[in-house]
């Protein structure tokens, strides 16, 4: 019985023998494959910004149900009635035009999924902590959203309708970036969810599909004077004071 047990080396024994039988090149390749497999749970296959389609000001791109056109990035002390949570901080504003190009109404809150916080612009979270540049897309702080035409909130974007929106983050008061990287993250249409529990919705992928560097208009610049705030008329907002 003893020799019978020795005759079966087991799975690990087979793997060890197989690995030992490989040549140097085979061992290197096998090791590399094993390393990638081991790193898979930690994001080895995630898309990186380098794979993204270049994004530039004034160029419309399709993301989920939206056509998104990033107009500009502005740093400002205030935006109409909107002020940073910490008075020493500033607001970083991405001004964009969004159009729903689908046949169904789209939730405006998903604009926050599509446009993650710009990178390299000194964005801070709601507790005032700086957001590192390498923070994953889905972990960056969400912006407040405003319809520039009336300075109000948006709940739904119906087919064929275009809004000029301001996406607003808190920015470190001492930050004065000349440029910032603006990313767009994709949405996947889920026609039929797992087990049919949740169907027909846009799921954030948190994968960057478009990316580009934009000039950041500093406080007090010409473009900042009411343009970013875009609070022409509406509920009492008057543009920026910078």
């Amino acid at each position: 019985m003893k020799h019978a047990r020795n005759a079966a080396p087991g799975l690990s024994g087979v793997a060890r023998n197989l690995f030992a039988s490989l040549g140097t090149t085979g061992k290197v390749v096998t090791g590399a494959v094993a390393a990638v497999l081991a790193a898979t749970p930690f994001g080895a296959w995630n898309a990186v910004a380098d794979d993204a389609v270049p994004l530039s000001a004034g160029t419309p791109v399709e993301v989920g149900p939206y056509e998104v056109l990033i107009e500009k990035v502005v740093s400002t002390r205030t935006l109409g009635d909107v002020r940073p949570l910490d008075p020493a901080d500033k607001l970083l504003v991405v001004v964009a035009e969004v159009t729903n190009t689908s046949d169904l109404p789209a939730h405006a809150y998903q604009l926050a999924d599509i446009v993650p916080a710009p990178v390299g612009a000194g964005v801070v979270d709601r507790e005032g902590r700086p957001v590192a540049d390498d923070v994953a897309t889905g972990d960056r702080p969400l912006p407040d959203r405003y319809n520039i035409a009336d300075a109000g909130d948006l709940d739904v974007v119906n087919p064929g309708v275009t809004y000029r929106v301001a996406l607003v983050w808190n920015q470190d008061g001492d930050a004065a970036p000349a440029t910032a990287r603006v990313d767009l993250a994709g949405l996947d249409w889920i026609d039929e969810g797992f087990a049919g529990l949740d169907d027909e919705y846009w799921l954030p992928t948190d994968e960057i599909t478009h990316s580009g560097r934009f000039d950041v208009e500093p406080p007090g610049s010409a473009g900042d004077d009411g343009e970013a705030g875009g609070a022409d008329g509406g509920s009492g907002s008057t543009g920026t004071d910078a």
Binding site: D150, N158, G160, T162, G233
Partner: peptide, 13 residues
């Protein structure tokens, strides 16, 4: 184009 209930809202369309 505009409605006024709890503040004025401007239509996108």
């Amino acid at each position: 184009q505009r409605i006024d209930g709890e503040g004025v809202a401007q239509a996108g369309g």
